[in-house]
Simulated assay, not measured.
Amino acid sequence: MSATKVKPNASHKDRICLALDLNDEAQILAAVDAFKEHVGYFKLNSAFTLFGPDLVQKILARGGKIFLDLKLHDIPNTLSGYGEAMVRLGVHIVTVHISGGSEMLEEFVRSAKQAAGQLKKPRPKLIGITVLTSIGRSVMNAEVGIEGTVEDEVLRKARIAASAGLDGIVCSAGELEFIRPHLPQGFLLVTPGVRPEGSGKDDHQRVYTYADAVKGGSGLLVVGRSVLNAKNPDLAIAEIYSALEAANA
């Protein structure tokens, strides 16, 4: 994978996260080398299961920042252990399911803060999962057993997250304008499932464009296949930059 030729932009960089949904370590590290000047974070899911903390350290050594998308969900005592582990690991963002409840979330926050103080290391941003972008209202109502609209459920969970001390949430770009006025200033809104204009949905249901996400106030756009599978990765990155630039015009 060749290095992208797009001119780096520091103000845009930290608003972009590249999801490394790859199962080959060499390909993952090649992607980090190719895109590290243009994206602020690299998101790990199954790759962390395969290669573990060693992969995290290799990416950190290359100057990349880690979004560890573990979607943690367990009893409070277990999350306490994760809070310390995430600080020790040195990741920058980690996700947790808000549906685990306030006690679990508060213990996660408490543990991470305590570990950061004791170890004199930065605390990662703790970001709550609201409703997966692969889920629409019909599945949420009929299978998950939650009534009402997706927007209402995202806002309900976002308020729980803010009250518990989390730093932000994950939601689709479609909920941003609805929820943003009800949340604290500086609360990080992370939007996966964003695509170039005219792209397919893949396995997401609530899909929006880069421009939709930026207009709605997304603090971090999570992209993956639209960049990694692009025929021209330069053009793919440039399109994201253009959406960010248009918002500042």
Rank of each mutant, 00 (worst) to 15 (best):
136 G>E: 14
137 R>I: 03
130 T>S: 09
135 I>T: 12
138 S>T: 14
145 G>T: 11
139 V>Q: 13
152 D>L: 03
112 A>Q: 05
130 T>Y: 03
115 A>T: 08
148 G>S: 02
129 I>G: 07
113 K>C: 01
137 R>P: 00
152 D>K: 15
124 P>I: 03
112 A>L: 07
132 L>H: 13
135 I>C: 09
153 E>K: 12
118 Q>D: 13
136 G>H: 11
114 Q>G: 00
122 P>H: 08
148 G>W: 03
134 S>R: 04
118 Q>K: 15
150 V>C: 02
110 R>M: 00
128 G>F: 06
116 A>H: 11
114 Q>K: 15
124 P>K: 05
133 T>R: 12
153 E>M: 09
119 L>Y: 00
151 E>D: 13
128 G>N: 06
119 L>C: 08
122 P>A: 11
149 T>I: 01
141 N>H: 13
134 S>I: 08
132 L>E: 12
123 R>G: 04
124 P>V: 05
141 N>C: 01
126 L>T: 05
114 Q>T: 12
122 P>M: 02
125 K>E: 04
131 V>S: 05
123 R>S: 06
130 T>V: 04
148 G>N: 02
115 A>H: 10
152 D>C: 02
121 K>G: 02
146 I>L: 15
111 S>T: 11
149 T>N: 01
121 K>V: 08
140 M>K: 10
124 P>C: 03
119 L>G: 10
120 K>N: 11
117 G>M: 09
148 G>P: 04
153 E>R: 12
125 K>A: 10
134 S>M: 05
126 L>A: 10
120 K>M: 06
139 V>S: 13
131 V>A: 07
129 I>P: 09
153 E>G: 01
123 R>F: 03
120 K>I: 05
122 P>C: 05
112 A>V: 10
143 E>L: 12
138 S>Y: 13
144 V>M: 15
127 I>S: 05
128 G>V: 06
137 R>S: 02
116 A>W: 06
131 V>D: 03
121 K>M: 13
140 M>D: 07
134 S>Y: 11
153 E>F: 02
123 R>Y: 01
121 K>Y: 09
150 V>L: 11
146 I>Q: 13
144 V>G: 03
112 A>I: 10
